[in-house]
C-alpha cells in the first residue's frame, strides 16, 4: 500500500516536471512549477525529512514562486514557449535527445549502485547529548556543521548585494504608489502578528522537533513581503543603520562567536558544552532575522523592478 503511494508520488513529480517544461505559456509553467515543488515536499515528508519538506514548501515553492510571478510582469505572457520560428534544427534536437537519454541511463545506473556506506546517522546520534539540542537536524545545522549555515546566511546576503549590482539600488527605495485594497490591508494587519508568532514558535520548536531558523525566517520574510504588498514598505523605509544591522546581524554574530571560541582556545564554532543550547538559540534567532530581512529586501527589489515597466499584471487572455 505505502509502496503504491510512493510510486504514485514519484510518477506525479516526474509528470509535473515534464508538463512544467512543456507548458505553452509562462504562467502555466510557473504554476506547474509550484505544484512540482509541493509534490517534492510531500515526497520528503514521506521520506521522513519533515524539516526539508517545510523548507521546500516555504522557500522553494512559496518564496521563489512569488518572485517568479512577479517576474512574469516583465516577460511576455501569452506567447507559446518561445522557440517559435527559430526552432533548432532536427539534427541538433535529435542529438540533444540522444545525449539526454544516454545521460539518463548513466544517472539511473549511478543512483542505483551508490555504495551503502552506512551514512553518518550513528555518529550524529552519539554526539546528540553534547550538541545542546535534541533534534538531530538542528544539531547538524547549528552545531556539527555550523560553518555551512554561517556561510549560507552569507550567501543570502550576497544574493541581495548581487541584485543591487544588476540594476542600481534605486529600485529598492522606490515608494509604493499603487492603491491597495482596504480589505487586503485589514487581512494583512491581521496576519502579521500571527505570522510572527508562528515563526517564533517554529524557531523555538527547532530545538526538539522539526522546525528551526530557516523555516522561521521564511515566515517572518513572508510577513515582511505581505506588509510591503499592503502598502507599508516597512523594510525599505526604515532607517538605513537599522536595515544594515538587521541584514548583517546573523552573519556578524556567527563570525564574532567563532572568533571568540577560537580566542578561547577551541575550534571555530566549538560551542562550550554548558551554554550550547542557549547560544544556538541566540544564533538561530539572529540568523532567522537576517534571512527574513534579506528575503523581504529581495522581494522589495523585485517588486520595484516591475514598477518601472509601469504595467499592471494582466493574465494571458487580454
Amino acid at each position: 500500500m505505502s509502496l503504491w503511494i510512493d510510486s504514485l508520488l514519484a510518477v506525479l513529480a516526474v509528470f509535473l516536471a515534464v508538463r512544467c517544461l512543456l507548458a505553452p505559456t509562462l504562467p502555466q509553467c510557473v504554476f506547474l512549477f509550484f505544484a512540482f515543488g509541493l509534490t517534492l515536499a510531500l515526497a520528503w515528508a514521506r521520506l521522513g525529512a519533515v524539516d526539508v519538506a517545510i523548507a521546500e514548501a516555504a522557500i522553494a515553492a512559496g518564496f521563489l514562486g512569488v518572485l517568479l510571478i512577479d517576474a512574469l510582469r516583465d516577460f511576455s505572457r501569452s506567447r507559446s514557449t518561445g522557440e517559435g520560428g527559430d526552432r533548432p534544427s532536427r539534427v541538433s534536437q535529435g542529438l540533444v535527445g540522444a545525449g539526454v537519454l544516454v545521460f539518463l541511463v548513466v544517472a539511473i545506473e549511478a543512483v542505483w549502485r551508490v555504495p551503502n556506506g552506512g551514512g553518518l546517522t550513528a555518529l550524529a546520534a552519539d554526539n546528540l547529548p553534547q550538541s545542546g539540542v535534541d533534534h538531530p537536524v538542528t544539531a547538524v545545522l547549528l552545531n556539527y556543521r555550523s560553518y555551512d549555515t554561517w556561510l549560507e546566511v552569507g550567501v543570502v546576503l550576497m544574493a541581495l548585494l548581487a541584485l543591487f549590482a544588476t540594476g542600481g539600488r534605486e529600485y529598492f527605495c522606490r515608494p509604493v504608489v499603487r492603491a491597495v485594497d482596504p480589505l487586503l490591508r485589514q487581512v494583512i494587519l491581521l496576519f502579521t502578528p500571527v505570522l510572527f508568532l508562528v515563526g517564533a514558535f517554529l524557531l523555538y520548536l527547532g530545538k526538539t522537533e522539526p522546525g528551526g531558523a530557516f523555516q522561521a525566517a521564511v515566515l517572518w520574510g513572508a510577513g515582511g513581503i505581505l506588509l510591503h504588498l499592503g502598502g507599508w514598505p516597512v523594510f525599505a523605509s526604515m532607517a538605513p543603520w537599522l536595515r544594515h544591522l538587521l541584514l548583517t546581524a546573523g552573519f556578524g554574530f556567527f563570525l564574532l562567536l567563532g572568533f571568540l571560541f577560537m580566542a578561547g582556545g577551541g575550534a571555530l564554532f566549538e560551542y562550550p558544552l554548558a551554554q550550547a543550547g542557549l547560544l544556538i538559540l541566540v544564533v538561530e534567532t539572529l540568523a532567522a532575522l537576517s534571512i527574513a530581512a534579506a528575503l523581504t529586501a529581495i522581494f522589495a527589489y523585485f517588486n520595484g523592478m516591475s514598477a518601472e515597466s509601469a504595467e499592471p499584471f494582466t493574465p494571458a487572455s487580454s
Binding site: D181, L183, L184, V187, L190, F191, V194, T314, S317, S318
Partner: peptide, 26 residues
C-alpha cells in the same frame, strides 16, 4: 487561517477581473 486567506484571495481575483479595462471577456 486558510479560510481567511482563500476568501481574501478569491475576493482580490474577482475584483481584479471586474476592474479590467477589456470589458471582462471571460
Amino acid at each position: 487561517s486558510t479560510l481567511l486567506a482563500s476568501s481574501t484571495a478569491c475576493y482580490l481575483v474577482a475584483k481584479f477581473q471586474l476592474g479590467r479595462p477589456s470589458e471582462s471577456p471571460e
